[in-house]
């Protein structure tokens, strides 16, 4: 079955790292450059994230993420580069369009920030099993019900898409047109979507009962089959990350005071 989870088991170093560790990395990677407020800090963290993604063999998976956001970034660069208030120094003249240094530097800052955040999130999402992450939260007191909702989405949505395909095929075999102009598609939408919704409602009730009889609402404290192993390496990395965040906070405070 096709999963919509972005996680892929690659048996890499990051796969074996505790999920808490990677979450902390994501937070630190976003916070540290923001606190330091220097483009080079951003560049450094981006390089680190790219390196981590590369050794986890998931660098290629970032391409769609980056290219989609790249288009948005490109428009920002064009607009800021040409029209930002305070633009004075022309660096590039393309016919009637003039690009200014101030605007381009400003948009470069935005671009670096966005890419940094995206890559940091990618490091977490691409190398961590969603269920590990949620179990980690539940252990810390997060509601198991909400946790279930988060994890099950990854399997239930593809399930619903499969149901949708089956229903589309069934309706098509009875002569319904599902492809063609916009009007045809709109007309096809209702007879397609209503059986999906109805069957999902029935499924949900049945699944709720099935969960119920397996003690989902039991008041005893949940345990977990998969042991969470927080190794010494994990602890050291956690400490380093926290130290980095604290150091950048100190740096910021020093800047304010000085």
């Amino acid at each position: 079955m096709k999963s919509i989870s972005l996680y892929e088991e690659k048996n890499s170093t990051l796969n074996h790292l505790d999920s808490g560790c990677k979450m902390l990395y994501m937070v630190a990677a976003i916070l540290v450059p923001a606190l330091i407020g220097n483009k080079w800090a951003n560049v450094a963290v981006i390089i680190l994230s790219v390196f981590l993604l590369a050794i986890s063999k998931v660098l290629r998976k970032t391409v769609p993420v980056l290219s989609v956001s790249g288009i948005v970034i490109l428009t920002i660069v064009i607009i800021q580069g040409m029209f930002r208030a305070g633009n004075t120094t022309v660096v590039l003249q393309l016919g009637p369009a003039a690009f200014y240094k101030e605007g381009l530097l400003y948009s470069l800052g935005i671009a670096l920030n966005v890419f940094n955040i995206l890559l940091a999130i990618c490091v977490l999402i691409f190398t961590t099993k969603p269920s590990d992450m949620v179990e980690n939260f539940i252990e810390k007191g997060f509601s198991p019900r909400l946790g279930y909702v988060f994890i099950s989405i990854f399997q239930i949505i593809p399930q619903m898409m499969e149901t949708m395909n089956t229903i589309t095929d069934a309706q098509r075999s009875r002569g319904m047109e599902t492809e063609g102009s916009l009007l045809v598609r709109i007309k096809a939408f209702l007879p397609l979507i209503s059986p999906v919704v109805m069957s999902s409602l029935v499924d949900t009730k049945e699944r709720a009962i099935a969960l119920e009889v397996r003690g989902f609402n039991a008041k005893t404290k949940k345990t977990f089959l998969n042991e969470r192993k927080v190794t010494t390496t994990d602890k050291i990395i956690n400490l380093l990350l926290i130290a980095a965040v604290l150091a950048s906070v100190a740096w910021r405070v020093k800047l304010w005071l000085g």
Partner: peptide, 21 residues
């Protein structure tokens, strides 16, 4: 009857046992 929150048969069977603690 599949919970949808587990990726393997083994984990799926564990679901009820985890709930019982």
């Amino acid at each position: 009857q599949i919970t949808g929150s587990k990726l393997t048969v083994y984990d799926e069977i564990a679901f009820g046992l985890e709930n019982l603690g």
